[in-house]
Computed example of a mutant assay.
Amino acid sequence: MANKTIKVTQIGSPIRRPSEQRQTLIGLGLNKMHRTVELEDTPSVRGMVKKVHHLVSVAD
């Protein structure tokens, strides 16, 4: 049984955002516009995505 993954793409800029949101993007592995990373679908990753939902796009 394979682990489920999600694809997260940065669609918004962290400019003029709180440093907490910038650090969350870095924690997700995102630091440039339109960069996509594939992450394991865990509750902690889902929580990070929820924190910056306005800056990212999620595909299952």
Rank of each mutant, 00 (worst) to 15 (best):
H34G: 00
N3R: 01
D41K: 12
S13Q: 05
E20C: 01
E38P: 01
T36C: 06
I6A: 03
H53G: 09
I15S: 06
G47D: 12
D41W: 04
L55H: 01
R46D: 14
K51C: 01
A59G: 05
Q21T: 08
Q10I: 15
D60E: 15
E20M: 05
S57D: 12
L28R: 00
T36P: 10
D41R: 08
H34A: 10
L39R: 14
G47N: 15
R46T: 00
S13G: 02
V58C: 09
S13L: 03
G12D: 02
H53D: 15
L55R: 02
P14C: 03
E38D: 11
Q10R: 05
R16C: 07
R46S: 13
T24I: 13
M48Y: 10
Q10T: 15
T24K: 07
V37Q: 06
I15C: 02
E20H: 03
R16H: 10
V56T: 02
V45A: 12
R35H: 14
V56P: 12
M48V: 13
K4H: 08
H54Y: 14
V8N: 04
H34T: 14
H54G: 01
H34K: 08
N31L: 01
V37R: 07
L25A: 06
V8A: 06
T42G: 04
S19G: 07
Q10E: 11
I26A: 12
T24Q: 09
K50A: 15
G29W: 09
M33S: 12
M1L: 06
S44V: 10
G12I: 03
P43G: 07
V8T: 07
L55A: 04
V49R: 08
K51D: 09
G12K: 00
S57Q: 14
L55D: 00
G27D: 06
H34I: 11
H53M: 11
G27F: 08
M48H: 13
I11Y: 00
D41E: 12
E40D: 11
G27C: 11
K7L: 08
A2Q: 10
E40V: 12
T9P: 02
I11N: 02
S19P: 04
L28Q: 07
M48F: 13
D41F: 07
T9E: 09
R46A: 14
L55C: 03
H34V: 11
V45R: 09
E38Y: 04
K51M: 09
G12E: 03
V37H: 05
K4Y: 03
E40K: 03
E38C: 08
I11L: 05
V49T: 09
M48I: 12
H34P: 07
V58D: 09
R16K: 10
S57F: 10
T9D: 06
S19D: 14
L28I: 10
S57L: 10
H34W: 14
K51E: 13
N3M: 00
Q23N: 13
K32C: 05
P18V: 00
G12Q: 01
V45N: 13
I26P: 00
V37F: 08
Q10M: 15
H34L: 11
S44C: 07
E20F: 02
E38W: 05
P14F: 04
